[in-house]
Simulated scan of single mutants.
Amino acid sequence: MAVAEQQTVADAVPATSSRVPTVIVDDVHIVYTVYGAGTGKGSATAALARLMSRKANPNIRRVHAVKGVSFTAYRGEAIGIIGSNGSGKSTILRAIAGLLPTESGKIYTDGQPSLLGVNAALMNDLTGSTNVLLGGLAMGMSQQEVDERYQDIVDFSGINEKGDFISLPMRTYSSGMAARLRFSIAAAKNHDVLMIDEALATGDRAFQRRSEARIRELRKEAGTVFLVSHNNASIRDTCDRVVWLEKGELLMDGPTDDVIKAYEEHTGK
């Protein structure tokens, strides 16, 4: 499996283009290797024998997660990515972020894509306050910038609405509290390309409204936002374009209302 080619958009698009592309996904295929039970067992002699006989291990299989997907994202767009479970939504985001290799095809990006997911690791033994500091520094913010934005991050997350939770270790947080803080840290910085995986699905409606408003601000500041969510209401409120993936294939790419209507008719929801 070849390492994904993370090239700049300038390599793929002439400078005379009237709209500014930020991400180009060009005929991308992504294949996972899944190791089943028993793949770690057996002797080295048996493994060598399989190699010599070119016999495949029956406990190892390849899953074609993304199949020939192509699209172009432009500066100022907010793009929703929808589809049923296992359709390749999170996989394509991880590939754009450079976290997954492609089997074939190319991905071009303008600037550094940032992936925000509800499963992103936080330091559970450290306080929320320390995680704000470390998260900001990890995104490239200076100590002064983190200090200046610290209170806004805490207020946005709503962590302290029912007590001084920001001073407690992250392991004491509910999954919703951790997800809200994670989104708040990521949204404190203007990103060239921000990718959000299910972040808006966590939290009450008030937090979702704050999140949606912040995404609109990011769009105005010339960034591109991708949002993966099963919440069609959040997609409608936030995105003006939707990419629909199903079984790893691109089924539809167009205006939000048109694509979601087709998706809901397809799923019966």
Rank of each mutant, 00 (worst) to 15 (best):
V243E: 04
A213D: 15
D240T: 15
R210L: 05
A262C: 14
E249V: 03
E217I: 14
I260Q: 08
C239D: 03
I215E: 00
K220D: 03
L250A: 04
A213G: 15
D253E: 09
E217Y: 12
V228A: 03
N232S: 00
S229W: 04
T238C: 08
I260S: 04
D257V: 14
I260H: 05
R236C: 01
K261W: 03
D240Y: 07
A222V: 00
N231P: 06
S211G: 12
R216H: 09
V228I: 15
S234A: 06
C239N: 02
N232Y: 03
R236I: 09
L227M: 14
R210A: 04
R241L: 11
E221I: 10
L218F: 10
E217K: 13
R241C: 11
I260P: 07
V228Y: 03
R214L: 10
R205H: 13
I235P: 06
L218R: 07
E217M: 12
R205L: 13
E212A: 12
T224E: 11
V242I: 12
K261E: 12
I215C: 01
L250S: 02
E246N: 12
R219G: 00
S211C: 13
A233V: 04
T238H: 06
D258Q: 15
L245D: 13
K261V: 09
G254K: 10
W244A: 02
I235A: 10
V243K: 01
L218W: 08
V242E: 08
F226L: 02
Q208G: 11
V243G: 01
M252Q: 15
S229V: 12
D257P: 10
A262Y: 11
G223N: 08
E249M: 05
A222D: 05
T224A: 06
K261P: 04
N231Q: 10
R216G: 03
K247N: 14
E246F: 09
I260C: 06
R236D: 03
R236G: 03
D240I: 12
S211W: 01
V242S: 13
R216W: 01
R219S: 05
L251Y: 03
H230Q: 11
G248K: 02
A206D: 13
R209K: 15
N231E: 07
R241Q: 13
V259P: 10
N231K: 02
N232V: 03
I215K: 00
L245V: 04
S229T: 15
N232R: 07
H230P: 11
N231D: 14
K247T: 15
E249F: 01
H230D: 02
V242A: 10
F207M: 03
S229F: 05
R236N: 07
M252I: 12
D253V: 02
G248D: 14
T224H: 06
